[in-house]
Nucleic acid binder design. Structure first.
Lengths: 226, 226
DNA sequence: CCGGCAAATTGACGAAGTGTCATGGCCGGG
DNA sequence: CCCGGCCATGACACTTCGTCAATTTGCCGG
């Protein structure tokens, strides 16, 4: 089969018939348009028509690829989840101490968010002044993976036998909430955010690094561009 | 009627003309219907028409009271925020040690959530499997108040001079995320949740109470009724 | 008790969005 | 070269949106 991309079929890696290609392309067209529209109008105000209008396609075509606005949103969100999940899992698997487990997790997460701030922001703002967080199944699976890793770590004697469910929740809560503040600041400093979070989990408030607050400009959501 | 509520007016406490009364009543009618509809269909799927249909009123009337679905949602959400904010602020103001500050905050919050789980749940679920968090201006004001209280506490030497912005974010994140897991469990145990959160902030993971996990039934969102 | 005014309710309306489907164009295999 | 099937298309039937002129309803002075 190899030396013949010819007839038969058995798509090599990704089948490259013209048909397959436009299908992939159209999907990407829609996803890109959606990202733009969500950023411009906010998720809440955006409509399927707005998305399709930002595209050379016809309205009916949209529904060949996604069931609804919600589903495009999930796809975008899942891209992020799928990109970051393996990294986090790997970092945690390597950890041999609590310190490593916690520190590496937060550093990886904050660095990713900082790099991908466009997606992160776009996805979190529904309309002016109201932020939104929608946890898709894929994202929730990421949470569960974290909990499983915690349970493993406890079994290995790495962690004290705390409540893995609550601990997972606490990590997730801090990660998302602190990530947002981090993005409000200029310049973004994922290392500082990670230090803060890691120290909090390792030793509580008393162990926190002293304030360095790079004068958060009380900036409303808007200021990033710079 | 009786002893001449006669002419003039000067509304006693809350004006009780028939006019005023129906206005209050209609507003409440809409809010109650909205709560029900949001619970039934999820916030995302609900429409203004659905809400008004669950009411004896006409569609146009809705807009005399609220600008949009979003605004009803905010009103419901703000009821909660307005109820809990003063309590939290008061608790924090009384604190004379870090322990008190942290412990009382979390206990108050989790107890409130446990009591008001209906609103909390209703408001957090957009559709099956996707949770949502919308922070209205009123809620955000609550966050800012927390930050201000932290700054005050630092000034008073009660807290080490940590980054108040990040600390506020961490507290908020843990509070919301752990609250949700708490509600998944049977029975609800706000005290345990508060212990967990408080110990985390006071001493880090190593200070956490040992697992007691009342066998969380892997319950999907649904199970509460009991 | 009446008349009239203002305030609030009503439901119909035009604009726009939703998801579907018959149609037709185009790719790919024979 | 031709045909079968896949998929893009955009019109369609239906729903929702927010508005507004007409109407009802409570309020007040006479």
């Amino acid at each position: 089969m190899d030396a013949t991309p010819m007839k038969n079929g058995l798509p090599r890696a990704a089948a490259s018939g013209k048909r397959e290609q436009t299908k992939i392309q159209n999907r990407q067209l829609i996803l890109d348009a959606a990202r733009q529209v969500f950023a411009d109008l906010g998720y809440g105000a955006a409509t399927v028509r707005d998305i399709i209008r930002a595209t050379p396609l016809a309205s009916g075509t949209f529904y060949n690829y996604f069931k609804s606005k919600e589903e495009v949103y999930q796809a975008i969100r899942d891209e992020v989840a799928l990109a970051i999940r393996p990294r986090l899992h790997e970092e945690r698997a390597k950890a041999t101490t609590v310190e490593e487990f916690i520190t590496c997790s937060f550093r990886t997460f904050f660095e990713y968010v900082s790099d991908d701030r466009l997606n992160f922001r776009t996805i979190r703002h529904s309309a002016d002044n109201t932020r939104m967080r929608v946890d898709t199944p894929e994202v929730i699976a990421g949470f569960e993976e974290l909990r499983a890793d915690i349970e493993t770590a406890i079994a290995a004697g790495l962690f004290p036998p705390v409540d893995p469910d609550f601990l997972m929740a606490a990590i997730v809560g801090v990660a998302f909430e602190v990530a947002e503040r981090m993005l409000w600041r200029q310049p973004h400093d994922p290392a500082a955010a990670a230090d803060f979070a890691a120290n909090l989990f390792l030793g509580g408030v008393r162990a926190l690094p002293l304030a360095q607050r790079p004068d958060v400009p009380t900036a409303e959501v808007t200021s990033d561009a710079a």
